[in-house]
Design a protein around this nucleic acid. Structure first.
Lengths: 254, 254
DNA sequence: CGCCCCCCGTGATGTGGGTCACACCGCTGC
DNA sequence: GCAGCGGTGTGACCCACATCACGGGGGGCG
């Protein structure tokens, strides 16, 4: 795994309000934050009045690409919903090597753990692209959750999903070799995209950080996959051509 | 990692009621299951009437050491609380290699994921010792949770804890070498025991499965730790002698 | 008592994949 | 255009660990 100390060069934080360069990064039909919240799975069960109340409590902040949204071990007193852009949750070793625990896109949220168990933040969160986030303060979040059992239930579902993913990842790290882990990652990404074409840019370096491998090894393995006719790469995007091939590679003995 | 196909030789399931060999494995002061439930963190916030209701809905089952309590990918419709013994949640590769995701002792519970998100079981669960489990059926569990927001909140806290542990484990697998992972495991175990003496038997094989390494490598690393004066082993138990030494080993570059 | 299972220790050997070092390509911006 | 940068390909080298193959001990049970 390649060390890059990008993190060290960054100023934490972000700017209030929208980033100036972009007048309105959202389509007109979800111009208000209440409309946006209504599309977020976590809040889907709420009625209009409730989402409006949430929206009222939320502040919006912009974070340029590469900026650190929160630091591991800091006390946590805010909850975030991604309104635009993508962010990554990462663990960083003293020598700079990095693991990506997860990538969160529009409509996903983070920061709830520290609000639930009052422990410090469990990872760094960094903007992978220019991002807009909705921020709720601890007390507001908690009160709203307590008054909406449906939200608590949705939270339970989300945490369950993440726990399964995390356990899966542990299994992959121990039981699969690097090509196997890549194959699994690609299959997951395709599933999530709902199509064999993975649109979001996934650089070799990012994949490496996601599966705990080095960039070079990822490069070599992906080349193999292309030559085997399992995937095709078309300028920054990846297309899964032979799902079965990848799947077989996923079961192969480590 | 050593493959042992113990699992394949086992009959699933377990016997109803107490295991015959043991007349009463519980101290007199918590003879009833309601009394026991009152000591379980998840239910601590409930009043006597509520725990009694839970207790009434629970069936008790005994599982001999090595038996499989539930299988990965099965549909799940029950929730379990460990009343006696220890169980492990494991992932098993086709070739028999195994990872232990977690070990659960008295008062801990499992099986809630499948009830929350209606997905199949995410891992096998196997009895590491003769065990007694309380079993609640899906509907009973769900109804009780819905009517007790405090239980839902306690569940959120528990899932948060597990998610942190899982992410920690991912970090350790990627960023630490084998001795580093062992050092971390020992520190965690000592913290959990609340004393430098780790009472529960942790065989090298079990440690290996917990950290994704081979038994032999664990053996060699532990030997080093003893020689460095960081730990002492006294027939099946481990004593942490030099916490700082282990901690330093935990931060060392992979 | 003696057998059998588990558990533990240790050497020899092989290899997946990390690390280092460089070269190439396509953008973006001056 | 050229510089600079982020992403990708690829060879050489090396080392942490898995694997294989033993031998030895302790303790439960017939």
């Amino acid at each position: 795994m390649q060390a890059d100390n990008r993190l060290a060069r960054l100023t934490p934080g972000g700017a209030d309000g929208y980033v100036p360069a972009v007048r309105s990064p959202f389509p007109a039909f979800m111009a208000t934050t209440a409309d946006f919240l209504a599309t977020v799975p976590l809040f889907r069960s709420l009625d209009g009045a409730e989402t409006a109340r949430f929206a009222q409590l939320a502040r919006e902040k912009g974070y340029p690409k590469g900026s650190v949204i929160l630091f591991e071990d800091d006390p946590g007193d805010a909850f975030f919903v991604v309104r635009a852009g993508r962010v990554k949750a990462v663990l960083i070793a003293p020598d700079g090597r990095e693991v990506i625990l997860g990538i969160l896109g529009v409509g996903e949220h983070f920061g709830e753990l520290a609000l639930i168990d009052d422990q410090p933040r469990s990872a760094h969160v960094v903007a992978m692209e220019d991002a807009q986030l909705l921020v709720l303060r601890r007390e507001d979040f908690r009160r709203r959750v307590e008054e909406n059992p449906a939200v608590a239930w949705a939270l339970l579902q989300e945490l369950s999903r993440r726990l399964r993913r995390a356990d899966d990842k542990i299994g992959a790290l121990v039981l699969l070799d690097v090509p196997g882990r890549i194959a699994r990652l690609l299959l997951d990404a395709a599933d999530e995209a709902g199509s064999p074409l993975i649109e979001k840019p996934l650089t070799h370096q990012t994949i490496a950080h996601l599966i705990g491998a080095s960039r070079e090894t990822v490069s070599r393995a992906m080349r193999e996959f292309v030559q085997s006719g399992w995937i095709a790469t078309e300028r920054r995007r990846i297309r899964v051509v032979d799902r079965d091939g990848l799947e077989r590679r996923t079961q192969a003995r480590a």
